[in-house]
Each structure stands twice: as C-alpha cells, then as structure tokens.
Design a protein around this nucleic acid. Structure first.
Lengths: 216, 216
DNA sequence: CCAAAACTTGACTAAGTGGTCAAAATTGAA
DNA sequence: TTCAATTTTGACCACTTAGTCAAGTTTTGG
C-alpha cells in the first residue's frame, strides 16, 4: 500500500476520534497548500492555519513537513492508480478505454488539487516517488501495454504504440485539472456550466477514438 | 511584446556587452532553477550561483526575484506562441496540424525547462500571466478555433470541438516535457536513444490523426 | 593617461522558516 | 470525582532568504 516500505513494523495503533479527525483535516489542508505552492513553497504555518490549528499542534500529529507531504502524495497516487489497474483485458476494448478516460476526467474535475500535486512532484524530478514510478507503476503499465497490444493483434483497436497511447490518455485527462486556469481563461464562464464536464469527455473521446482525419 | 505594458516609457537603453552577457546568463540560470523549484522554492542565491556571479551582482541587473521571473516567463511564452500563430488557414489542414504538433514536440524536447516553467506558473493560478491568458492568448485561440471550424465545415477534417482539439494537442505535446521523469521511468533508457523523439512524434500523430478505433 | 561611469563584492538587516520544549488545558476510563 | 494519558499552546532557536548599503574594482571615453 505505502509507496515505500514502513521502516519498522508499527504497533497496532488504534487512533482516537481526535486523531482521526485532525489527521484528516491536516491531509486535506496539506493537499490544498502543497498543490498550489509546491513542496518548497508550502509552509507548515499555512497548512496549519487552513486546517484550523496551531503549527505546533500540527507537528504533534505529523513529525515533519516531509511526513505530511509523503502522506498526501501516497494517498493521491493510490487513488489515481485504481481505475488504471481496473482496465479489464476481457472487456470490450473501446468500452474499457472509454470508461477509463471518463473516470480520469471525472477525477480531475473532482480533485484537481490531487492531479496538480502529482504533476508538481514529477516535475520536480519525483524525489519521493521515483522508485515507485520505476517499479510498481512501470510493472503495471507494462502489463496494460500488453493488454493493449493483444487488442491490437486481435484487430479490435487501431495499431498504435500502447505506451504512447497510455501517455496520451494521461496527458489529455490531466490537462483539464493541471491547466484549468488556462482552460477557464480561454473558454470563459462556460466551464462553470453544469454540462461542461460531459462536453469535455465527449470531445476528448471523440478525438482519441476517431482521430482528426475525416472518416470516409 | 511584453505580457504587461511597461510602466513607464523607458529611455532608449543601449546595453553594454557585459550587460547583454550577464542578463542572458541570468535568464538561462533562472529558467533552470525556476522550472524545477517553482517560484517560491527558487532562491536568488541558487540562480546567482548557477549564473556564476554573486547574489548582489545579480540584483544589480534585475532589481528583484520577481523581475527575473517575469523576464524568463515572458520570454518563454513568446517563443511558445509563435508556432501556434503560424498555423496557416490556407494550408492543408492535416499538414498544418502535423507541422504544429511536430514543432511543439521538438520544442518540448529541446527545452523541457521552459515547458515546465509555464506549467508551474499556470498551476499556481497564473498570478503573473492570467491577464495574458484572458486577453492575447484567448484572442489567438479564438482565431485559430475559427480556422479549424472552417476546415471542418469544408469537410477537410473530422467534426471535433476546435477548442478541445487545441487543448488535446497542447496536453499531449507538453506531457513529454513536463512528465519526462515519469516517461523515462516507464520506458527506461530507450528514451535516450537517438530516434526516440521521432518515435514519439509518429505515435502521437497517429493517435490524434487516426484515432484508436480501427478504420474499416 | 585619467576620471567618471559601470560593475562587483562582503557585511548586514528584517522577515520568514522548520522544528523543539516544557508547561498548560483537555479528555476519558476507573 | 480523579488522575494519568492525550492534546494544545506559546516561547524559543538555528537557519535561510530577499533585499540594502557602502565601499571597492574594472571598464571606457576623452
């Protein structure tokens, strides 16, 4: 579950109600602050303020800034991996990809902070998650690339490089979270209208599924 | 040229050789540091060190950290806009898009720092370039979206939402710069091989032009 | 060659920053 | 109720950071 193995087998910590509440509040506030200011730019003070407690109290729950960051990013990565792992080799390929893309777009819309946090981490050179990327993520991507290759061999989808297809899906779906300020600036208030998210999904799916060239 | 209008009509400053050299060295170093550490995370000291001069000397050329940042990001945005503006309404649509995508991928490869710098700025909420996004960039995108719409009406490309097409192109082309650590982690050393960039271009173009669904 | 302008530097300041510590306030089980 | 464990706090420390300043050194035009 954890990105890195726990150093020591921690005793079976049962958390009090206050522990649970405060740790959750901290994680939420930290996601917010880290995702906009980056790791170095974020301050414990601001996280504490947003979580509604003193800095000293926050440090009672998480012993250091890096600990908070680690917690939040692990949380994010796990949530982000799940729908990818759920791609079913035996499902209908187009339907599976459509579902995955839709879920990712929904997640981007629901929690753009998480998306930005991860983007930030990778852009910094992934000091914390590099090992995870090289091991667990790579293995999972290799596996799914194999699935896609088999779909291609069966003639069920067009012959495209599986890895770059995965990257393209990640790129497009995350773009709407990571660059939402830019998207808003260009599209104006229509991005706030209720159906907008569906419109994005439809447009992206149309491009990725059918391409730009006119079909005969 | 500038993102924001100059406050006062500056006297016709002719720059000495030393001015020119040092300002260029600073801009280069700043791009490097800002793009990996973010605005808040970057320090004048590190920029100065990388530029090979003392902090005090650097502040002789740029009066503040924000001034350096502003300079570098304006530079970046201008370079980034040029090939987009160059999309020719009278050219062959597929060829124009292919060319634009290829150029953007080449730029991402040549200067991933610039790409990351801009991504970082937008992810922070675009404090410096927001106005630019809402005015000049929006106008330019509106114009190019009109071009694409006319191509669609003429049946020369498939009917996709022009704005989302533009976003999709930006997303995919920037992904290889902004997430290159992740790409490297997953694809391994093959990303260093000479032909890799062409392979990326080919794969991305294939997906965007033809889509994933098998053509009859 | 020389003085003025341009350039460079080290010492310094004021405002944060992450983190410690001991003491106080609160909670909860017996 | 009681008292030990848990939670919360303010004072504090060592360090980093953006930016100033005055005093130097180098460059350049006459």
């Amino acid at each position: 579950m954890a990105l890195t193995r726990a150093k020591k087998a921690e005793a079976p910590k049962k958390r009090s109600r206050i522990q649970t509440e405060n740790r959750a509040a901290i994680a939420l506030a930290a996601l917010d602050v880290f995702s906009t200011d980056g790791y170095r730019g974020a301050t414990i003070d601001r996280i504490a303020e947003r979580a509604g407690m003193s800095k000293t109290n926050l440090l009672y729950y998480y012993p250091s800034k890096e600990d908070i960051y680690r917690q939040v990013i692990e949380q994010t990565v796990e949530a982000w991996l799940e729908p990818f792992a759920a791609i079913d080799p035996d499902g209908d390929p187009i339907e599976e990809l459509r579902r995955y893309i839709t879920i990712k777009l929904t997640m981007s819309d629901a929690s753009p902070e998480a998306s930005r946090l991860f983007a930030n981490e990778v852009q910094r050179g992934a000091p914390l998650v590099l090992e995870f990327l090289q091991t667990r993520l790579k293995a999972l991507v290799d596996e799914k690339a194999g699935v896609i290759r088999r779909w291609i061999d069966a003639g069920k989808i067009a012959p495209v490089d599986p890895y770059h297809l995965i990257f393209t899906i990640w790129a497009t779906t995350q773009h709407y979270a990571d660059f939402d300020v830019q998207v808003n600036a260009i599209l104006g208030k229509q991005t706030k209208r209720p159906g907008f998210n569906d419109q994005v999904a439809h447009a992206v799916l149309s491009i990725l599924l059918n391409g730009i060239k006119p079909r005969a």
